[in-house]
Amino acid sequence: MDINDLRSAVTLVSLLLFAGIAAWAWRPRNQAAFEDAARLPFSDEQGGQS
């Protein structure tokens, strides 16, 4: 096994990891949780500066 085989394996693992994360993020089941997380910065309207 030379360095090119290792590079190929790391590239393949990285691609599979990216595809898995992208598939997880686009699942309809996770949509509500992501929408709630997107609203977090706007949830504390009381503590603003005057």
Rank of each mutant, 00 (worst) to 15 (best):
M1I: 08
M1T: 08
M1E: 08
D2Q: 03
D2K: 03
D2N: 13
D2L: 05
D2I: 00
I3A: 10
I3P: 06
I3Q: 08
N4E: 15
N4G: 06
D5T: 07
D5W: 06
L6Y: 07
L6C: 05
L6Q: 04
R7V: 10
S8M: 05
S8K: 09
A9F: 11
V10S: 07
V10R: 08
T11P: 01
T11S: 11
T11I: 01
T11H: 09
L12P: 00
L12H: 09
L12R: 12
V13Y: 06
V13S: 01
V13N: 03
V13M: 07
V13I: 00
S14H: 01
S14I: 02
L15D: 15
L15V: 14
L15Q: 13
L15P: 04
L16Q: 02
L16P: 04
L16T: 03
L16S: 01
L17A: 15
L17C: 14
L17F: 14
L17G: 14
F18M: 11
F18N: 05
A19L: 12
A19E: 07
G20V: 08
I21P: 07
I21S: 05
I21N: 04
I21Q: 00
A23S: 12
A23C: 09
W24M: 05
A25S: 13
A25C: 07
W26I: 13
W26P: 00
W26E: 01
W26Q: 14
R27S: 13
R27V: 05
R27C: 00
R27P: 01
R29A: 01
R29F: 03
R29D: 03
R29S: 06
N30C: 12
Q31E: 15
Q31P: 05
Q31G: 09
A32F: 00
A32R: 06
A32D: 05
A32G: 09
A33D: 02
A33N: 07
F34Y: 05
F34R: 15
F34K: 14
F34G: 02
F34C: 01
E35Y: 02
E35H: 06
E35F: 05
E35W: 01
E35D: 07
D36A: 08
D36K: 13
D36E: 01
A37S: 12
A37I: 02
A38R: 11
A38F: 04
L40A: 13
L40E: 11
L40G: 02
L40C: 00
P41T: 08
P41H: 00
P41C: 00
F42W: 13
F42K: 08
F42G: 11
S43M: 04
S43F: 02
S43W: 06
S43H: 06
D44A: 11
D44Y: 06
D44P: 00
D44S: 13
D44W: 11
D44H: 14
E45I: 10
E45R: 15
Q46E: 15
Q46G: 12
G47C: 04
G47W: 07
G48K: 11
G48H: 03
G48I: 02
G48A: 09
G48D: 00
Q49D: 15
Q49H: 10
Q49G: 09
